[in-house]
Design a protein around this nucleic acid. Structure first.
Lengths: 179, 179
DNA sequence: TCACTATCCATGACATGTCATCTATTGAGA
DNA sequence: TCTCAATAGATGACATGTCATGGATAGTGA
């Protein structure tokens, strides 16, 4: 098993274990990790967002996360209505209950991250890993979603990492051709 | 967004993009990434494996990946029969067609890994990332599955990374309590 | 021999990501 | 004004991971 193949499986394993752990943390709030991410995006938004705008900020990117958001509307955590200025667009925002659940989810995730920080390997490795992963996802929709999110909550910190070119053409961005 | 939270999203993003790219590679062979992993495990097995034994070697670990394997049986790539020595156990092995598809999937994945290697960031970062991820998944079922796989295909290389303790008790292993 | 526990596997139900198709609405240009 | 293209969102179908339950079989110890 060469090192690139192992990397692929390690990323899958890390994602799996992390998702499972996060699911345990969010379950008492009646949320799944994907729903938690939607609430995190909306919690930090200055204004109502369209489905498309939410999709652009989710790492679990689906372009237009209709069903995921609908589940939160059904749970009473999000309100949505068609935009009178553009009948194609639905504007979504947190309800009062949604703001409360989003705040509790945020607190629970912060606890989770502190616990994770305590057991991650020490030293500079974390920075190397984060830099490495930022680079390999930079050109992808989910990488850009993450950059966008970071720019919105901490503009200065994100300034060094914003990637220039817009996504070319429709659909998924092409994979990098080579160096 | 603190660095641990970003790490979590970056791992998710890297996994997503990688899964999508791998799905593109395997689709012409009529395989999904999860099915490809099952064939990879069986391709390197010396003997017929039980469902449980397959599950222990999969990073997409489910304990007993009944439905995933059933889809490969239905596709004619795997044969299975109850073990006469132990009626609880189903023994599974690749069919002739399965061996052929597994070989082609392996070749396709090797090409994919070479392409990935060409675009990954250069220098020592890859080794740091692999070491870091190995450490954080070491105690989990999927981390042990990966160690097991590496030990089976390259015993010497894996010797330095084999983790000592067996999984305690039934069910998922507990998360590390702290340092 | 028997009762109980453990193991293996199948299946139900749900969440969600992916790919595709479709409807409704808006924008652009002739 | 009208046609065509683009956009936004909904929905269908499928794959698969997760959590749980249940049936069949084997192991253990009294």
């Amino acid at each position: 098993m060469d090192v690139v193949e192992e990397l692929r499986y390690l990323v899958l394993a890390a994602q799996r274990e992390g998702a499972r752990a996060l699911a345990d943390v969010l379950r008492p709030l009646g949320l799944t990790p994907a729903q938690g991410e939607v609430l995190a995006v909306m919690r930090t938004a200055d204004a109502a967002l369209s489905l498309r705008e939410i999709g652009e900020r989710l790492v679990c990117e689906t372009g237009s996360p209709s069903r995921l958001v609908t589940s939160l509307v059904a749970a009473g955590l999000i309100d949505g209505a068609r935009d009178p200025a553009d009948g194609r667009v639905t504007r979504l925002s947190l309800t009062a209950a949604g703001r409360q659940v989003a705040a509790r989810a945020h607190a629970a995730e912060q606890d989770f991250h502190r616990g994770l920080a305590a057991v991650l390997p020490e030293g500079d490795a974390l920075d190397v890993v984060v830099g490495f992963l930022r680079e390999i996802v930079a050109a992808s929709p989910s990488g850009r979603a993450l950059s966008r999110r970071r720019a919105e909550v901490e503009p200065a910190a994100a300034a060094g990492a914003v990637d220039g070119p817009a996504e070319p053409g429709p659909g998924r961005s092409p994979r990098r051709a080579g160096r």
